[in-house]
Design a protein around this nucleic acid. Structure first.
Lengths: 147, 147
DNA sequence: ATTCATAATGAATAAATATTCATAGAAATG
DNA sequence: CATTTCTATGAATATTTATTCATTATGAAT
């Protein structure tokens, strides 16, 4: 039961390919480890203000970037991140199992200058920063979110 | 059987209120004299690139103003306008019966500087222009479309 | 005008989506 | 801890939308 992560995944899926139906979406989400019913997706789509066009579901127009009512990254971090360590220009983040992927995606999307790129396994994220200072700065920022 | 006018009417209806379903749309179109089945509306919606949001059908985003694939005003004029006369700063246009309203709406939307406003009955449109010259100019332009 | 092709359409139906109803799990409250 | 509330969810279902299959108009070409 994890609405937050799932809805982020929905948006992410949308960015990649075009989704013709909720059944499609259901299949793609299952690949990412989200096993949900069609009814729930119908609700997610409403919550995220997606619209259905002849070519599939689309992000809402006006809004900058993505969904209107998205919980902020900080909420994700607080909920799923267990530990943060920096080493050189890198950051290693431990999450509860299964959440690394989506949390990494969210951090990516946050589009912070300190983040060059991320790689996520099952419960570990590696973030590459431009340099040592950025890594520490980013670690600090994320740690604050944990409080 | 009049796809062109009907699709314009669909867009016009959209501008006014929000349409939650094709059944809604069907009802509103009937009021305007278009009697069509749901299947046809489903097709119109596809043709016009409308999208369905949580708050009803909406115009496509990117495009300027309205629908992408709309037949031009000229096509409407050629098909439905029978006669044009100018008098002072006014223009009187005769159409085949029942088409005056939608043709007038289309002329309105064309947003030409010569058109101050329009009033349409059943088979007659009155267009008010800023002055005599404009009326003649507009008459000329519309007459050309008839060829 | 007759024939042929194409487009538009509705009825019936298939497919997709939204909603209702019931349940289970969290979070708050006493 | 027990109780109450609230949220998220799925299964079943209702509603809505898309498509299929004929059928009828419209137009072009001879």
């Amino acid at each position: 039961m994890n609405k937050t992560l799932r809805q982020r995944a929905v948006l992410d899926v949308l960015k990649h390919g075009s989704i013709a139906s909720q059944e499609d979406l259901q299949r793609l989400l299952r690949k990412r480890g989200f096993k949900v019913g069609q009814a729930t997706l119908s609700r997610d789509i409403r919550d995220l203000n997606l619209s259905k066009t002849a070519h599939g579901y689309a992000l809402p127009q006006g809004e900058s970037g993505a969904g209107i009512a998205l919980p902020p990254v900080s909420r994700l971090v607080r909920e799923f991140v267990l530990d943060i360590r920096s080493a050189q220009n890198q950051l290693v983040i431990k999450t509860i199992v299964g959440s690394a992927q989506p949390v990494a995606a969210a951090l990516d999307e946050a589009d912070w200058s300190e983040v060059v790129g991320t790689i996520a396994g099952d419960d570990t994220i590696l973030i590459v920063c431009p340099d040592k200072d950025d890594a520490r700065k980013l670690a600090g920022r994320i740690e604050e979110m944990l409080s």
